[in-house]
């Protein structure tokens, strides 16, 4: 009896095709074309000249470009660090509180905390500019109420405070996302494990750190990598509050605003698509290395635990 050959599984291609086409047309092709553009320079009368890696060399070594690039990268890492040190721990804390059974109305809180995430970033920027405004803002009154009126600053106007202020505004907006991911993971944990620990006499503190937290480690990794990708693609909040020049004195300039200013130009400065594409190439390399680090350094070491 001969084994009947299975027919070619055409349906696999049918099911893959929509995603494959959409990704190719809207993600992969633009990405590759942008990387291609970064290898060209604009000659006279708009013609494109192949220059190899010369744009990258200019970006990394020229006195006009390199300080701006490193400044943007440095600011971007500060922006990311604030999110990792403030947003994600707070998200975890909120998730732990809201998933505990003693908190009442947790779904109301969850909705409220998540609301800023779905608001338009222009609105967020505008609201916070008003709150922090030295003229109409409530930040001075609020601090005076706490007896700290002297501490009030033009938060968005000083080189020393502008970047941290904007990072915290962004944390305020996006804290709902780690909170949701962490709570989903915490809710999914089986009760038996926790009950068993409690029977053994573990306190709530050690139950959290020794049972729950190790079990949600994969989510911690996903949250970290989402934060990383999100932060290194960030642009809109800075642009709406500080403009494309990311003042004062480029103190809030991150890769997104640096790219925008270069690619599209600004005021009298003409756009430079090829240098812009070069900056986009650097952003791609940074994000790619971060994501690879996550895949090989973190995700592959995680043990699968059969619950």
């Amino acid at each position: 009896m001969t084994k009947k050959r299975k027919p070619f599984p055409i349906h696999i291609f049918v099911f893959l095709a929509p995603a494959f086409l959409v990704y190719t047309v809207f993600m992969i092709y633009p990405l590759i074309d942008s990387l291609r553009l970064s290898l060209f320079s604009t000659g006279t009368a708009g013609s494109e000249l192949f220059v190899g890696l010369a744009n990258y060399k200019t970006l990394l070594t020229s006195n006009n470009w390199a300080p701006r690039l490193w400044n943007a990268i440095k600011n971007n890492f500060i922006f990311f660090a604030v999110h990792m040190l403030v947003q994600n721990p707070i998200g975890l804390l909120l998730a732990a509180l809201l998933s505990s059974k003693i908190v009442r109305g947790s779904s109301v809180y969850r909705t409220l905390i998540f609301t800023p995430t779905v608001l338009s970033i222009v609105l967020i920027g505008f609201i916070w500019r008003l709150i922090l405004s030295p003229i109409w803002g409530i930040s001075e009154d609020f601090l005076s109420f706490l007896g700290l009126g002297v501490l009030n600053q033009p938060w968005l106007g000083l080189e020393s405070t502008a970047l941290f202020t904007l990072s915290l505004v962004s944390v305020w907006q996006y804290v709902g996302i780690p909170m949701l991911l962490f709570s989903a993971a915490l809710i999914g944990l089986p009760d038996e494990l926790i009950e068993a620990a409690q029977v053994d006499g573990a306190t709530a503190w050690s139950v959290f750190w020794r049972i729950k937290f190790p079990l949600i480690l994969p989510t911690v990794g996903i949250v970290a990598v989402l934060t990383f990708v999100g932060n290194f693609n960030a642009f809109d909040l800075i642009y709406t509050t500080q403009g494309a020049l990311a003042g004062p004195n480029f103190a809030t300039d991150i890769l997104g605003t640096f790219f925008f200013r270069t690619f599209f130009g600004f005021q009298l400065q003409a756009g430079n698509p090829t240098m812009g594409a070069t900056i986009a190439g650097v952003m791609f390399v940074i994000i790619l290395s971060g994501v690879l680090l996550y895949f090989f350094g973190w995700q592959r070491r995680l043990q699968r635990i059969e619950l």
Binding site: R129, S133, P134, I135, P154, L156, G157, L158
Partner: peptide, 12 residues
């Protein structure tokens, strides 16, 4: 200049 002018925008 007005108090806190470093953070005062044009429309303000």
């Amino acid at each position: 200049l007005i108090n806190g002018y470093q953070a005062v925008a044009y429309p303000d």
